[in-house]
């Protein structure tokens, strides 16, 4: 895991090459941005929660933006794990915005009957940053 704000912040776990987690973070204007990648295995979403909570604690960001642009599939199982990330972030006082959900993925999440409360959404990353500025504040 790497947290970058002009190249700052490293997770000690990243020194372990067998870790397998490559969750990359960026901080823009005090917003922690996580780019979600298509999973290689269950471990990705399992470790995501740990990685995100660590990065939130370390950075002190009050807004978490998860960019789902690259995800072609989110099933019920994946969504429960994302939900866990959102709930943990909320307990840490962080508001979550999910950005860039593809049309097919969005439709599938609705069909699955997943609980989509407790977080905000935006069409893309740019919109998410604008939403954070106007609706959530610094």
């Amino acid at each position: 895991m790497t947290v970058r704000e002009s190249g700052v912040m490293q997770d000690p776990k990243s020194n372990n090459p067998s870790d397998g987690t490559e969750t990359a973070f960026n901080i823009i204007d005090g917003r922690l941005i996580v780019t979600l990648h298509p999973k290689d295995d269950d471990f990705y979403f399992d470790s995501l929660c740990d990685d995100v909570s660590f990065a939130l604690g370390k950075s002190g960001c009050g807004v978490l933006i998860m960019d789902a642009t690259h995800l072609e599939l989110i099933d019920d199982w994946d969504f429960q794990r994302l939900r866990r990330v959102i709930d943990v972030a909320a307990l840490m006082g962080t508001k979550t915005i999910i950005a860039g959900v593809r049309p097919g993925v969005a439709a599938s999440i609705v069909e699955l009957g997943c609980d989509i409360g407790g977080f905000s959404t935006a069409l893309n990353l740019k919109s998410a940053l604008r939403f954070a500025d106007t609706e959530i504040g610094p």
């Binding site: 072609e72 099933d75 199982w77 097919g104 993925v105 439709a107 599938s108 699955l112």
Partner: peptide, 27 residues
Amino acid sequence: LRTMLEGVGFGELQISSSVTAASELLR
């Protein structure tokens, strides 16, 4: 499955539904 459906010309929404449904059953 995704490659097969793309090859036959299924649309994005249908591919997403199919792959998500398949994922649920295989899990």
